[in-house]
Design a binder for these strands. Structure first.
Lengths: 153, 153
DNA sequence: TATTGTTATACTCTATAACTATA
DNA sequence: TATAGTTATAGAGTATAACAATA
């Protein structure tokens, strides 16, 4: 009996985690902190509120992560130019370089994954994986909507 | 610019996590505990050592998880028949039923994911995903081997 | 009155190290 | 001497609730 498609995908998810853990081994960074830095690299300087929404995590959690990243010199808190309640979190030059390198490794990993698929199959596989992602997203969004209905009917 | 294959797969991994979180919402179970129960269902009664290896986690961690699951009535510790140092951890009847239901939901989710792919593409997609999983596994195993070489050259 | 971030508190997951009881 | 599990300790990630400053 061949493994289910779902099990293959779960295996891939697990391997990604291991690969990433390896990638920032020795940098002193943790998955949650890298995730925040990654968002910051893509979104640019952001308020902690914005980061909380991007990472789908509580504001309190962001305070802790930013505290740690500030301590390790990866980010800086600067005053928001117009809203004195808020702060802008931004990457330091050093961290920006680190994130550029991670982005390169990310692109390289993508290339090797694509290369692992037979050339004639690539388009079909990309299409299939996209269909699965779309379907899953709808499933999860549906479940979330149903759940919030129960809270506020 | 279409998203990278890698990003699609990461998105799928993220959606799995959300879907699972939803699945055991209200059961009082957490991802780590469900993972242990899942292993137990597939492996049958096991020593804590065995569970530590299956979950790739420290023995101390297993003690904590089993303590919690014993407290909530999901598992039972019984003496090992031949080794008086060891205990066997096994599912209670109640938890066994819960896990059977989860297994069904798992199979149903797999079916809907397969259904999301165009019938003509299914074989190709399964082949591609398998190739990616195999490639990634080799990558991670390689990295682990290189790392342990550094520790013990 | 609503929003931004922080302090206070607590729980889960995880790890390493030292220790006990058995092999 | 080595192995199975536990106690002790510690740190990261996460959450909710109460609060201060500002909008």
């Amino acid at each position: 009996m061949t493994p289910l498609l779902l099990d293959r995908l779960l295996q891939i998810a697990d391997l990604f985690q291991k690969d990433m853990a390896r990638a920032f081994e020795g940098t002193g960074l943790t998955p949650a902190r890298v995730h925040l830095l990654w968002m910051l690299q893509h979104a640019g300087p952001s308020t902690q509120q914005a980061l909380a929404q991007l990472l789908e995590v509580s504001p309190r959690n962001i305070t802790g992560l930013v505290d740690a990243l500030e301590g390790s010199g990866h980010v800086r808190r600067t005053p928001h130019p117009t809203d004195r309640r808020a702060v802008l979190v931004e990457l330091t030059a050093d961290a920006a370089r680190t994130m550029t390198r991670m982005q390169q490794e990310h692109d390289e990993l993508n290339a090797t994954l694509v290369a692992a698929v037979a050339p004639a199959d690539r388009d079909t596989v990309e299409r299939g994986v996209t269909a699965i992602a779309t379907h899953l997203q709808a499933l999860v969004a549906d479940a979330a909507a149903t759940a919030s209905e129960k809270t506020a009917p």
